[in-house]
């Protein structure tokens, strides 16, 4: 009887212990959450730092091509009437000089610039064209399209994309969105430092005409890439081309899911390009350069046709004499494709 009226000391002590642990746990959670918030605030604050655009286009540029593109657009007074953008298939497979010459023979004096570069991803091509529209008024923009739209962004977009374009992309459900966003503070900090100490970061602020003039602009003839000679004149046998290991575009489940949600990064940026082109009165032309013995059709041709004509050179696919390797045309192939493109451009109202 007496025991039942005694206070429950053990229970009370346990209760105090439990509430103390709960408080400690909450305090810990608060500390960790606050540290995350601090890191995020600092990262956001860094994103407000100014950046020098010229230095931005040199930030990650192993072969100097991005710098050359920026210089061609902003420092070279020669107008640009036709601009070509796309991956390396277009960089090696279309010759700006050959197209210019071909059109000149037809009495059309136009300036062609090939801004295609290594790697797929339409976001970078949009960034290049966006920069182009700021300074020049191209009449025609040629976009190379593959058999299947590439489901990811370009690995270099995070270096040159506009801050607003990285933070507020056409859809938040982009495959590279977080990857690009996470890199933004790093880029901003580097460019801020480079603006103050260009020599320390190896990013120049001064345009050097001599350096610009030394750039290779046409890749349809032999060149040195990654320390190796890429012989564009050499005839590669059919067996060698067939034996080359092909790198398929990775089709991850995540990429497929995102494509289902947002229609695919490629289409989102093509729509963006088409809007800007329309605003500047520029005509869009799509060109398909095939892989050796690859598909001869463009899977999203109907989508592309709403923005401009689709020039499908898939018939070149079985002709081994036109290929440098399984995915790139050689000099003969580039001359063939360039002649056909010049022919198509000649038919446009320039």
């Amino acid at each position: 009887m007496g025991n039942s009226s005694e206070p429950d000391y053990d229970g009370a002590l346990n209760g105090i212990e439990t509430s103390r642990e709960r408080m400690a746990g909450l305090r810990l959670f608060g500390v960790l959450a606050a540290s995350l918030v601090v890191a995020l605030i600092l990262s956001a604050a860094v994103c407000l730092l100014p950046e020098n655009d010229y230095q931005k286009w040199q930030l990650q540029d192993p072969d100097g091509r991005l710098r050359w593109i920026y210089e061609r657009i902003h420092f070279d007074p020669t107008p640009i009437d036709v601009a070509i953008v796309g991956p390396s298939r277009a960089q090696l497979g279309l010759s700006a000089a050959a197209i210019e010459q071909d059109l000149a023979q037809r009495g059309k004096r136009v300036n062609v610039a090939n801004f295609a570069m290594l790697g797929s991803g339409r976001d970078l091509q949009w960034a290049i064209l966006d920069e182009l529209f700021k300074a020049k008024s191209p009449k025609v923009v040629v976009l190379e399209v593959d058999e299947e739209p590439y489901p990811f962004g370009h690995f270099l977009f995070k270096h040159v994309g506009l801050t607003e374009a990285i933070v507020f992309p056409p859809s938040p459900f982009l495959h590279n969105y977080l990857y690009n966003l996470a890199y933004l503070p790093i880029r901003k900090l580097k460019l801020f430092g480079a603006n103050l100490f260009p020599g320390l970061f190896g990013l120049t602020k001064e345009f050097d005409p001599k350096h610009y003039a030394e750039n290779r602009t046409d890749y349809s003839t032999s060149f040195i890439g990654d320390g190796k000679l890429v012989d564009m004149e050499h005839r590669v046998s059919r067996d060698t081309l067939l034996a080359e290991p092909r790198e398929p575009v990775p089709r991850t489940r995540f990429a497929r899911l995102l494509t289902r949600i947002n229609g695919g990064e490629d289409h989102l940026f093509i729509e963006k390009i088409a809007r800007e082109a329309k605003a500047h009165g520029t005509q869009l032309v799509f060109v398909h350069l095939p892989m050796f013995e690859g598909p001869r059709t463009v899977s999203d041709e109907d989508f592309l046709k709403q923005f401009g004509p689709v020039l499908n050179y898939g018939d070149l696919a079985p002709r081994d004499e036109l290929f440098e390797n399984w995915s790139h045309l050689n000099h003969a192939g580039a001359m063939n494709a360039s002649a056909r493109l010049a022919d198509a451009i000649a038919g446009l109202k320039l």
Binding site: G30, V31, L32, A34, S35, L36, V37, V38, A39, I41, L42, S43, A182, P185, I186
Partner: peptide, 12 residues
């Protein structure tokens, strides 16, 4: 929390 936050920022 401020020290950790700065470290996380530097890491990133």
């Amino acid at each position: 929390w401020l020290q950790y936050g700065v470290c996380l920022f530097l890491l990133s």
